[in-house]
Design a binder for these strands. Structure first.
Length: 577
RNA sequence: GGCGCGGUAGCUCAGCUGGUCAGAGCGCUCGACUCAUAAUCGAGAGGUCGGGAGUUCAAGUCUCCCCCACGCCA
């Protein structure tokens, strides 16, 4: 039994995410977690909401709520959606937790002691009306280059010219519109990532088995231009982890918080701490290699936009903190599975533009399994992939309703009408049955291989082929004909087919957990042991075992439904949730 | 403008270190079957692998140039 730590990129708190976010990290992570649990491994599957930063403050203000209250509510909403999609987190934490505050401050303190923190003085725009410093992108004004009057402090969207906030003509706060702005001197902490560049580079180079998508992005940031830059890890905000040096105050840093990208990945660790506090478990044995985590395999799932932070920034934090060599050693990630983007009818899904299908809407129109199956079987692994309603409809109808659902239906109904609702006991397996078992054994082993390798699409294709094999078998042996001359043989055929339903339920559970549960329930069994021995597994339901004909497992998506949804989701929805 | 990832059958996509690599699923056509959610099973048609040049005995598979789409950055 192996110990496997799995984290999914943590979704930002300020709204409901679209399906692209789901398929890019949480869903494949869940697939892997479920599979590894089913194989008997010890799994810790962690996710959380990423709650700090200016966008959260602004979203809260727009909702007319204090930011902590807003975040608590949104965390509940996101947690509910995660449940809706059957994401099997061991813990769904919050980056605003006390545990994360303490750990973030702890890491900062260690980095400071390791000599990797530098204080930098810089000038920043302060809004007297808003009572806060403004990040560059929250300052608007007229572009000195093209005259566009809604240029942002970091860039003019009209002419794309890179700007400094002080370049803007008639600058104003994008938050309040106030022009009562002034430039103030402020001090910030920088993490000297450049000092860690060689170690990071060696570490990345050692990961020859990582997806090209992952390493190519990391190497680009490491080597492009001037190479890896030092990074500001503090901000002049109210909402965040207060800057401290471990448990001590940090002189000169009063009233400042850590930058959201510094504390967010630390939340992976803190969320495990949250889990431990709630369950009495041992979180350090998952994260401290000096406390047992040396036997842990740590796998991260994320979209490609998150790769730089997980291949460089977070590892820099860990490597830097470990460099004290005082025995306290933290776990670095072993494997990063990254995904491209899922596009929506020819363009991007977009949270800010409200374009595409959002997670809550998806669950309103169809059960989780439909989305899980289609999204996973079309996961954007090697390149961006495309969601179209036609594809979704045909994929779901064909794979789930026709191939799998109808298999369950035809077998159980045939048995009920000819033998009653119990596994028939006459007859023995012959050549066709043994051939099927041999074929299935090979396919199940291939499926396991793809799942272990996190080859999501290939896993789905193999699973589908396993379902098809059942239909092939039925078509070949044709129990509806056999029963006329040789009822015993038909009984054996149906006995095998009923056992196939149970086998399919077990194998399919990581993809479609609800349907899998229904299948096991209709077979009236709780034995969901993984089929290490396929032949034995296909005798698990003994002669005489009672079952019941289930309801239709998957209703088909009609053309009317599809057209209806297509129209409904063609526009945009209010971006701010 | 620079960089990155792609451009393979109508659609969505596989094709690792060059030599059964021209494939899968869907769609389409034809056939079989009738237990089943008008389901299933089989067969077939469909592509000069974005364009051009080059390296090689041999190139979707390597090199160079160009075109197109997307993304990131400046």
């Amino acid at each position: 039994m192996a110990r496997i730590l799995i984290t999914s990129a943590i979704p930002y708190i300020n709204g409901i995410k679209h399906l692209g976010n789901l398929v890019g990290s949480q869903l494949p992570a869940d697939l892997y977690a479920r599979f590894m649990r089913a194989r008997g491994h010890d799994v810790m599957f962690i996710c959380a909401t990423d709650e700090h930063g200016t966008p959260a403050e602004l979203a809260a203000a727009k909702a007319g709520k204090p930011v902590d209250e807003f975040c608590a509510e949104m965390h509940k909403v996101q947690s509910g959606i995660a449940d809706g999609f059957r994401l099997s987190f061991d813990h769904f934490g919050r980056s605003s937790s006390a545990q994360n505050h303490a750990l973030t401050q702890h890491f900062a303190g260690r980095l400071n002691r390791a000599g990797l923190i530098e204080e930098v003085s810089e000038k920043q725009v302060y809004s007297n009306t808003d009572g806060r410093f403004l990040p560059d992108r929250y300052i608007e004004g007229t572009c000195p280059n093209c005259g566009y009057d809604k240029a942002r402090g970091d860039q003019c969207e009209n002419c794309t010219k890179q700007l400094d906030p002080t370049d803007l003509i008639d600058p104003r706060s994008a938050i309040s519109g106030s022009t009562d702005l002034e430039v103030r001197e402020t001090k910030h902490l920088y993490l000297k990532q450049s000092d860690l560049k060689d170690q990071l580079s060696d570490w990345i180079d050692s990961k020859s088995d990582w997806p090209i998508l992952t390493t190519s992005i990391a190497k680009k940031w490491l080597h492009d231009g001037d190479g890896l830059q030092d990074r500001g890890i503090t901000r002049d905000l109210n909402w965040g982890v207060p800057v401290k040096d471990g448990e001590k105050d940090w002189p000169g840093m009063e009233g400042k918080v850590f930058y959201v990208w510094f504390d967010a990945p630390i939340e992976y660790i803190a969320a495990t701490h949250e889990w431990a506090d709630a369950s009495g478990g041992d979180w350090q044995s998952w994260w401290r290699t000096d406390k047992g985590a040396d036997t842990v395999r740590y796998v991260q799932f994320m979209g490609k936009d998150n790769v730089p932070f997980h291949t460089l920034s977070f590892p820099a934090t860990i490597i830097g903190a470990n460099s004290l060599n005082d025995g306290e050693q933290w776990k670095l990630v072993d494997y990063i599975k990254s995904f491209n983007y899922l596009n929506y009818d020819g363009g991007q899904f977009s949270t800010s533009q409200g374009r595409g299908i959002f997670q809550d809407q998806a669950l309103e129109i169809l059960p989780a399994d439909y989305w899980r199956w289609w999204l996973l079987s079309h996961a954007p692994e090697s390149s961006d992939s495309e969601f179209t309603w036609e594809n979704f409809q045909s994929g779901v109808n064909k794979d789930l309703a026709d191939v799998l659902g109808n298999f369950v239906s035809r077998v159980t109904k045939f048995c009920r009408s000819k033998f009653g609702e119990a596994v028939p006991d006459a007859g023995a397996f012959g050549d066709a049955e043994h051939a099927l078992i041999t074929d299935l054994t090979a396919r199940v082993r291939a499926y396991e291989g793809y799942m272990e390798a996190m080859e999501v699409r290939k896993s789905a294709a193999e699973l589908r082929a396993i379902w098809v094999a059942g239909n092939e078998y039925l078509q070949t042996v044709a129990p509806w004909s056999t029963i006329k001359e040789n009822p015993d043989m038909a009984a054996a055929q149906i006995r095998l087919a009923l056992n196939l339903i149970r086998l399919y339920a077990i194998l399919s559970a990581p993809f479609i957990p609800d349907a899998s549960k229904s299948m096991l329930a209709s077979m009236k069994t709780t034995d969901d042991a993984w089929p290490d021995d396929v032949a034995a597994s296909l005798s698990a339901l003994p002669p005489g075992h009672v079952f019941e004909v289930p309801d239709v497992l998957f209703a088909k998506i009609s053309d009317e439904d599809r057209e209806d949804w297509q129209a409904r989701f063609a526009g945009t929805r209010d971006a701010a949730q």
